[in-house]
Design a protein around this nucleic acid. Structure first.
Length: 295
DNA sequence: AAAAAATTCAACCGCCTAAGG
DNA sequence: ACCTTAGGCGGTTGAATTTTT
């Protein structure tokens, strides 16, 4: 691909992974767990760069990866999240169980981004001049996803660009925990019907909406809102509500869901506690802070 | 049927931050 | 305080595949 390798890769395999390599990597990680990527290839007997192993595992081999077409609901959610977060694919992927940042990024670049710009789904300068094929895959996928609501993409096109600050690496597994709301109140709301938003959560959303939320630095704002400070290293111990994910308006189901990014991630667990229906509020523009408030 | 064009997506890259020495 | 290492992220590339001509 034209660039010099990032690390010494003499004698290392590159390019597409073979089935055997996949098997070796999968077996090794199942036996020893993730992590120590630099030394993993040597220990596993793979002639691959550690980064390559990590990427292969995270984007393809993980058992909880959901493969296949992105549904209309997922598409809507991606558009919404992109409006809010910009190109922070990892954060967006964190809201779509089983989807990887790479997959979402690819989907955006090939489909949604062009939709949002009102461009035909084509690439390249020479390609821009020609009209889109009448039955391109993108077109067919559009037709297939019958639940697609074009209004969101159109709305995205009219919104001003998202203001972003530098992305911050998330070094801890993000487990959105129950926010620090009075337990009685929370218990009540948790028992409420699914169509009713818990009052505290509604208040939380309102607070976010009313506040001048700088999306790129929302962590700090949220930390302040929920009593966490920069000095609070032990956020999880506080049951805190203190990361960028948690700055998003959450509904009850999402908060109750066990979100993990680690080895214990099990899609069936998600299915038990969270499905796309639980994210439906994201499709409701009323539930989102306005752009003016974000910037 | 074959060639060209369009499209997808896995894989790579450089850069950044955090952690540890 | 500085340096090194490891892990993670978003941007980009190009081979493979699909569709169109």
């Amino acid at each position: 691909m034209g660039r010099s390798p990032c690390c010494s890769k003499q004698g290392l395999n590159r390019g597409a992974w073979t089935a055997l390599e996949d098997k070796i990597l999968t077996s090794y990680i199942k036996a020893h767990g993730e992590g120590k990527w630099r030394s993993l290839p040597k220990r596993a007997g793979l002639k691959r760069c550690g980064k390559s192993c990590r990427l292969r595992w995270l984007n393809y081999l993980r058992p909880d990866i959901k493969r296949g077409n992105i549904s209309g609901d997922e598409e809507e959610l991606i558009v919404r999240l992109h409006n809010l977060l910009g190109n922070r694919w990892s954060l967006i992927a964190g809201r779509l169980p089983g989807r990887t940042d790479n997959e979402i990024k690819n989907y955006w670049n090939t489909t949604l981004g062009k939709k949002a710009k009102g461009e035909p789904t084509s690439t390249g300068s020479s390609k821009e001049t020609s009209p889109p094929p009448t039955k391109s895959r993108a077109k067919r996928r559009e037709i297939e996803s019958k639940t697609t609501k074009p209004s969101a993409a159109a709305a995205a096109a009219t919104r001003p660009p998202v203001i972003r600050t530098k992305a911050t690496r998330l070094t801890k597994v993000l487990v959105p925990t129950i926010p620090q709301i009075p337990s009685d109140d929370y218990n009540q709301t948790a028992n409420a019907s699914s169509s009713t938003k818990p009052s505290e959560l509604q208040a939380h959303q309102t607070q976010l909406t009313d506040q001048q939320v700088n999306v790129g630095d929302c962590t700090n704002n949220l930390n302040n809102n929920y009593g966490c400070t920069d000095e609070d290293d032990d956020i999880e111990a506080k049951g805190g509500f203190c990361n960028a994910f948690q700055s998003l308006p959450l509904d009850e189901a999402m908060i109750n869901a066990t979100w993990t990014g680690g080895n214990d991630c099990d899609l069936e667990d998600y299915g038990a506690t969270l499905d796309l229906d639980s994210l439906a509020f994201l499709l409701d523009s009323e539930g989102w802070p306005s752009q003016e408030n974000i910037s």
